[in-house]
Amino acid sequence: MNKNISKEHHQEAARPSKKKMLYPVKPALRTYLERYGREVDLPVTYNDLIHFTYARPLLDAKGNETAWEQVSYDYREWEFLKEGLVKCYAMLKTEGDFSFSSNLNVERIDFCSFGNSQPFRIKIVNVFNGNYDHFYIKKADANRVYGLELEHLLSSSRIVFLTCNQTLIEEHIAGIPGDIFIKDYLHKPETNVLRLLKSFVKFNESSFVRLLGDMRSYNFVVDITPDIEGTQYYIRAIDFDQQTYEGKMRLYMPQFAKENFDIVEMAMKHLDSESIKQYQAEERSRLVYRITTERYRMKELMDVMLKDEISTPEKIYQLKFELADYWKNPSFLKAKTMGAILKIQMKQVLLPNLNMVLKATRHKTLRRNFF
């Protein structure tokens, strides 16, 4: 994260592709998903949900229309879907233990036509106490699957998702949507600004290192946790469609999104350059420890990703030239896929930290197992 950023830089920031191409989950990736228990037979697929008979706008608590629509089905279809969706939820949460299925009911199904994956959101309710949860059913997209898996392997939080052919189901990631947080919480006197900014610097760094794009405020959430003294903030991505897809380097840096400018402006005001460098170093060290812990699985995933087609030749060409110029590293120019660009990017940023880990642990096989 650069300390010297003006408002004009954000206003000139490149915009993501208006409509992202969906890339299918190919056999090599599916084999990886099967190996790690991600690919399963689901009782309900995406195609089962698209035959709704009616849709009406879903309103928020203030009566305003949202991006979602509540959909309805005929009676027989609804009964089939309810039973199957409860089982899908059990597969996500209890590894297929259906003994609690009688406790659960589907209260509502919502549909969003604006997202790249055109998701359905399922609201599940406990019939005994009214407690509820959500999960999502989407079109399976290779970029998103890679993004979810990298999130699971590299972030501080585990994430649960399953695939079935070209259907993807995901758990709900809890938190305050970033755009709502900026509007309603950011400027409140009780907000611990310094802790929030530390989290944003780390989030910006991890997004760039792993090339997760389009982290505008409505594509991440802020998780607020009361602590011994004050409050902790953790920023988590919730949209992974732009994992190594876009060609413009700035799209992988949340600091350049106009929607995030209020947070970045605060960072420029409250954080000095040395603090920013410290938080970036902390995040790189955390990523290295995650990679060393998951090195064999990471290698398997990257081996698949290196050969997969998940972007256009034009975007690959643009990104590798921009990164080669940014890092002054011609190795990027040899990359032929987005997976190859990502591997060079991670090596470029994380190798110094990895060398420190190797020195501290005397584990000489770590570098060749991944880098």
Rank of each mutant, 00 (worst) to 15 (best):
Q70L: 05
Q70D: 07
V71K: 03
Y73D: 09
D74M: 07
Y75L: 09
R76T: 13
W78R: 15
W78S: 15
E79D: 06
E79R: 09
F80D: 09
L81Q: 07
K82Q: 15
E83Y: 04
E83A: 12
G84M: 03
V86W: 01
V86F: 01
K87V: 00
K87M: 06
K87I: 00
K87D: 05
C88W: 01
C88A: 10
C88G: 02
Y89W: 14
A90S: 13
A90F: 01
L92P: 00
L92Y: 05
L92V: 00
T94K: 07
T94L: 08
E95Q: 11
E95P: 00
G96F: 08
F98V: 05
S99P: 02
S99K: 11
S101F: 05
S101W: 02
S102C: 06
N103L: 14
N103T: 09
N103M: 12
N105R: 12
V106Q: 04
V106K: 04
V106G: 03
V106H: 02
I109W: 04
I109D: 03
D110G: 12
D110S: 11
F111L: 02
F111N: 06
C112A: 12
S113C: 05
Q118M: 12
Q118D: 00
P119H: 03
P119L: 00
R121G: 12
R121L: 11
R121I: 02
I124G: 09
I124R: 10
N126E: 04
V127C: 02
V127F: 01
V127D: 03
F128M: 02
F128Y: 08
N131Q: 13
N131K: 13
Y132M: 05
D133G: 04
H134G: 00
F135C: 07
F135I: 09
F135G: 06
Y136K: 03
K138F: 11
K138W: 09
K138G: 12
K139S: 10
A140F: 10
A140E: 11
A140T: 13
R144C: 11
